[in-house]
């Protein structure tokens, strides 16, 4: 774990409140594995008590890429960061996704939950299918980037039907699971997104006796396991998302 002062190389809005933030962080980029996160000290939040945690969209060539949505005070303040500024980033933090998969990897992302799945898809060998869901086509992110990753098929869903299947991303997911099962093929599930999606994917992993890897994102305080604020109930009790997660095995999670 490092607390690095990182130069902002790119800070680019891509519409609908989503932004890419690319920083120069050679040591961290080399160490990060998909599913881990970084804890960002937002410069304009000096009176604030907390950093903001972000999953990692990519870590390559000495750069760490974050894809984020402006949702509150912290991310709104982060918007003001300019290219060339330096920001403090603590990381790599937490336990990531496994980087091998037996059978087809089904990556299920809701909204900006696709961010760590992009990094994962780049590192996972073998066949992958990305299921990306969002409210509208504006919430389907980085589709062009996923298209560049070899052996990766895309299946999309939007609540308003503007792109892909109309409804939740579990629609195309369930079709694919049924097809794979009919062919007797193995698969594993990897997901990041809103809690409803995480729970739905957990259910499908358990129902099909397939490994499921769930990214549990919580508001965090320390990010390193010191404060016990970001709790997820698991078979081991009250587990800390920041250090025992954020990636949990589906079979270990207890949803309330």
């Amino acid at each position: 774990m490092l607390d690095e002062k990182c130069k902002v190389l790119v800070h680019q809005e891509i519409g609908s409140g989503y932004r890419y933030l690319i920083v120069e962080a050679p040591k961290m980029a080399a160490e990060l594995v998909p599913g881990q996160f970084v804890h960002v000290k937002v410069p304009a939040l000096e009176m604030s008590a907390l950093r903001r945690p972000f999953s990692v969209f990519d870590a390559t060539d000495g750069m760490v890429v974050i894809l984020y949505k402006t949702v509150g005070r912290g991310t709104a303040a982060l918007n003001g960061v300019q290219e060339g500024d330096e920001i403090n980033i603590l990381g790599p933090l937490g336990h990531g996704f496994p980087t091998e998969c037996s059978g087809t990897a089904l990556l299920v992302g809701g909204g900006f939950g696709v961010a760590p799945l992009h990094f994962l898809a780049k590192r996972l060998p073998g066949k992958k299918i990305l299921f990306a869901g969002g409210r509208t086509q504006n919430d389907l992110l980085a589709i062009d980037r996923f298209q560049l990753i070899p052996n990766t098929e895309l299946k999309l869903a939007t609540n308003d039907g503007s792109v892909g299947a109309k409804g939740f991303v579990t629609l195309p997911l369930d079709e694919t699971i049924a097809e794979l099962k009919a062919k007797g093929e193995k698969f594993e599930l990897f997901t990041c997104g809103p809690d409803g999606l995480l729970k739905a994917v957990t259910d499908r992993a358990l129902a099909n006796d397939a490994p499921g890897w769930i990214s549990c994102d919580r508001h965090m305080v320390c990010g390193v396991g010191a404060c016990y604020a970001c709790i997820q109930k698991t078979v081991r009790g009250n587990s800390r998302c920041c250090i025992e997660g954020p990636i949990f095995a589906a079979k270990d999670l207890i949803w309330e």
Binding site: M47, A49, Y228
Partner: peptide, 24 residues
């Protein structure tokens, strides 16, 4: 061992932090 309090356990406020971790 002690499980601590239910979530949410904290709230950020101007100039500080309110927590009720509950000594997990």
């Amino acid at each position: 061992p002690w499980p601590g309090n239910p979530m949410p356990r904290h709230a950020e406020v101007y100039g500080g932090l309110v927590n009720a971790i509950g000594l997990q």
